[in-house]
Design a protein around this nucleic acid. Structure first.
Length: 178
DNA sequence: GAACAACTGGCTAGTAACGG
DNA sequence: CCGTTACTAGCCAGTTGTTC
């Protein structure tokens, strides 16, 4: 039976490490805020943001303003997920264009990927950043992958979502936009 | 002394190991 | 398989230090 006052090695180790870990965390936050400040000061030509002592809250407020003004996030009054859909479409087109520009890419593979990508549609339902993130699908390559006839997408079953919304089984057969 | 930043202790969620 | 325990990582609110 160990005495209550005895300090276990792991506990002592953690106590020593904790301040360092927290300091690193703050540094990460501050580094990113600093990068944001520099970026925004150039993008917005803001004198206020050129001051390294500008408040963190100020940097975040300017970031929100910048994103809203650049139409990268839904605006009040936007209907549905038009921005998301057009972004999705743009990504698909870019991917297809990139693939077609590679003559050395295996033809069967190219055909397979083209077919898979072209068959995707952006989700019809509106999505907002506060929603549960959609798992990113990965095309399931198998030995005969180029000959797959369906639009089946197999997604890594390694994780289930916290709320249990997706099980490994649903990941395997998940076909979001088909 | 006010405003802000850094530090610290406590809490929680996730996870691995273990035994029944 | 399920419950328990120990451990870790990350977050956050309260406290302390620093700057102006």
């Amino acid at each position: 039976m160990k005495g209550a006052s005895e300090v276990r090695p792991m506990e002592a180790h953690r106590k020593l490490l904790k301040p360092l870990v927290e300091r690193r965390r703050r540094e990460r936050i501050n580094n990113s805020l600093e990068k944001l400040r520099i970026f925004l000061s150039q993008a917005l030509k803001s004198e206020k943001l050129k001051n390294p002592k500008v408040e963190k809250a100020e940097i975040l407020e300017c970031t929100v303003q910048f994103l809203q003004s650049s139409k990268l996030v839904p605006q009040d009054g936007d209907v549905g997920n038009k921005g998301y859909q057009s972004g999705f479409q743009h990504c698909l087109e870019t991917a297809l264009h990139f693939m077609n520009s590679k003559p050395d890419l295996n033809v069967a593979t190219k055909d397979f990927l083209s077919h898979q990508l072209s068959s995707y549609k952006p989700p019809a339902e509106a999505w907002s950043p506060t929603d549960t993130p959609k798992p990113t699908p990965s095309i399931g390559y198998q030995d005969s992958a180029p000959h797959l006839s369906s639009n089946t997408i197999s997604v890594s079953p390694t994780k289930t979502l916290v709320d249990g919304q997706f099980s490994p089984q649903t990941f395997q057969t998940w076909r979001p936009w088909v």
